[in-house]
Design a protein around this nucleic acid. Sequence first.
DNA 1: ACAGACTATCTATGGATATAGTTATTGGCA
DNA 2: TGCCAATAACTATATCCATAGATAGTCTGT
Lengths: 209, 209
Amino acid sequence: MDIVIGNTECKGNTVSLRYALLALLTVEPMTGYDLFKHFESSVGYVWHAPDSQIYPELRRMESDGLLEGREVPWGPRGKKTEYRITDEGVETFRAWMNTDLEYSRERDPAHLKAAYLEWAEPEAARSQMQAHITHYRARLEQWTEKIREIDDGASPMLNKRLSGIPAEEHQKTVAFKRFTYEGLIARAEHEIAWAERGLDLISELYRTP
Amino acid sequence: MDIVIGNTECKGNTVSLRYALLALLTVEPMTGYDLFKHFESSVGYVWHAPDSQIYPELRRMESDGLLEGREVPWGPRGKKTEYRITDEGVETFRAWMNTDLEYSRERDPAHLKAAYLEWAEPEAARSQMQAHITHYRARLEQWTEKIREIDDGASPMLNKRLSGIPAEEHQKTVAFKRFTYEGLIARAEHEIAWAERGLDLISELYRTP
DNA sequence: ACAGACTATCTATGGATATAGTTATTGGCA
DNA sequence: TGCCAATAACTATATCCATAGATAGTCTGT
């Protein structure tokens, strides 16, 4: 007889926030608000979640034994809950990291719209492409800044992470972070180039001869 | 006093299937099953949805006046429901096409994992990169095939679409489709190149000296 | 002393999505 | 004739995710 208790099994497929939270908590213990702030800023453009998802998920993860919550005083009367990853949490994260992702089907509104762009007014079509460029330019800047931080040793999270592991592993940790952001930068550049070609195409198609 | 009836307003943000269905139904009337099949195959890698979402959404769209369902006999005893887009449906689609997309936050499991790849065994890390390559190679082939179909005039959906519009608009329709798939191909090539660099990086970092 | 911004957490609701079924008919093929 | 894959449609469940609020304490500057 198999007995499974509280097995909220997240399939490799759905990352569902859980592993993103575990990833951040491998670096250091944090409160829900800390995690929320990370998702709002830096990390937020690889993974994002609102606080209303984070707090309940943290409680669920605690009851699944992946985290340990601890009340910490905050000012004279306030308090906050700091979550620390447990050994089981580390193992769960490691197991996920050792499992291949299941790639889910694409769901790509920008390209869906692009395929039907003849339905839009020329100005609206241009505006979409411009919005695409603006969006990815912002990402590009953020990610370029990330690379700069990595190279300058100016990333607080990365430095904390490095201080917790032996020196001979620093290289790998830094290299994979850099590799990730390089990929995101290249992708952003591609998206910008694509949308710029889109703008040219629109001009060409709607040129009054 | 404002009275709003059945205003299931999908924000520009959430595409939510509805506009993907409208897009396909601008070409010709189809049954839920037809639409499902399209999402399973060709179109499925720009937008995907299981039938269990499609059927209820079609009914909702009908009650919102965007579609008109019509019972069609199917064999001696069977029947099926064919949905045709209404004028209101066309207007809704056009309005959506003339509105800028709101770009939602990234949620990118592959890059999230890549950023923490030092947690994976070297073989698992390699396997992830290989899976990334395999995934995008499959997309690449599909999309390349799409381009070929477009160029050869061998795309049934595109031909149906073209036969419903005046000749002077054919160029635009074809050009935007081609542009879309070109973008997807370039993206797939970028992802493959990235993952190949990942493989190199892993070899380099875990080389026994 | 108080305003206002920020920290910290929680609830509720609705819509999106995935998974796993059930039911029934059709049409081709052995 | 009988089997089976494909067609056609529906239901149920659970989670995911976004939006919008509610509540309450802290910290800083005026």
